[in-house]
Amino acid sequence: MAAVVNGTAARTDGEPLIQLTNLTKMYGDFTAVNNLSLSISPGEIFGLLGPNGAGKSTTILMMLGLAEPTSGKVRVCGVDSTRQPLLVKRRVGYLPDDVGFYEDRTGLENLLYTAELNRIPPAEARRRARELLERIGLKEAAEKRAGTYSRGMRQRLGLADVLMKKPEAIILDEPTLGIDPEGVRELLQLIRSLSRDEGLTVLLSSHQLHQVQQICDRVGLFVRGSLLALGTVEELSAQLFAGEPLVVEAEIGGDGSPLAAVTEALASVDGVLQVVSAAEQPQLVTVSCSRDVTASIARAIVGAGMELLSLSKKRYGLDEIYHRYFEGGKRHDRAV
């Protein structure tokens, strides 16, 4: 108890920095987070990925003690977030999505205010603020009012704001939202280098899988309040698509829907399970098969006298994971 009060490490070696155990959060009848267990080790960059309304923000709020879990436990830095949120907030930085600053104050003044709230002595606060502003590339804009900052600058200032208290871990909620692609790249590089240089643990949430996969050591796919999959990006695609049929896409030339003709032509090919085409793109026929019979498919289509424009084996990339789990679940997930 004494160690916790003094703000020194109460976490024993080898214990994860963030540990969620059977965490559940209900809003009335709606389950926002369902029996979530997760542990994040020190120094790791972890990506919590999921569509809007999957429960990412709720999970983050519970980690900081800003929302109370219905059941389950949250331990951050060895401290129970629900019971002692202040101790957690002293050591963990949180950047909310679409962070706001006092617009009539300068960027520097905003940082100094945060320092005051964290009981950092003025001289040290000023030194640290200057240092961070230089690091995030806002040195020139330090004396400008925060109201004049662009979205990307605000997000970078937010990062500096989070780092003012010298946190052990930072939690970033949708840090890349609304920034242009170049800005996203710079921000992510900044996060990565901060993590590597200072041994910072980073947890970031996003719904833009292809953006954050570049810097995350591990990702967790979070849909409808539960964790679907957990691991590195490679592990994920293996995990999600094990035992799936192989899919071949064929583009057929000519007018009208070739679906009926293709189905007839492929009826004789061994291993073809299903032939479908989308209504809005009738020329593109999707064939699922139990094993790789691409060559036979090509032969059958050409043999039937149709124009085969292209034929491709479909690979399950990250966007497919995204599409499959996030977009597919959209109808049920937007309830929050």
Binding site: L64, L66, L86, L87, K89, R90, G93, Y94, P96, D98, V99, G100, F101, Y102, E103, T114, L117, N118, R119, G158, D161, K165
Partner: peptide, 13 residues
């Protein structure tokens, strides 16, 4: 303005 959530993330009551 989005400053309340930033403030609540600081160690204050």
């Amino acid at each position: 303005k989005g400053t309340l959530s930033r403030m609540m993330a600081q160690p204050i009551h």
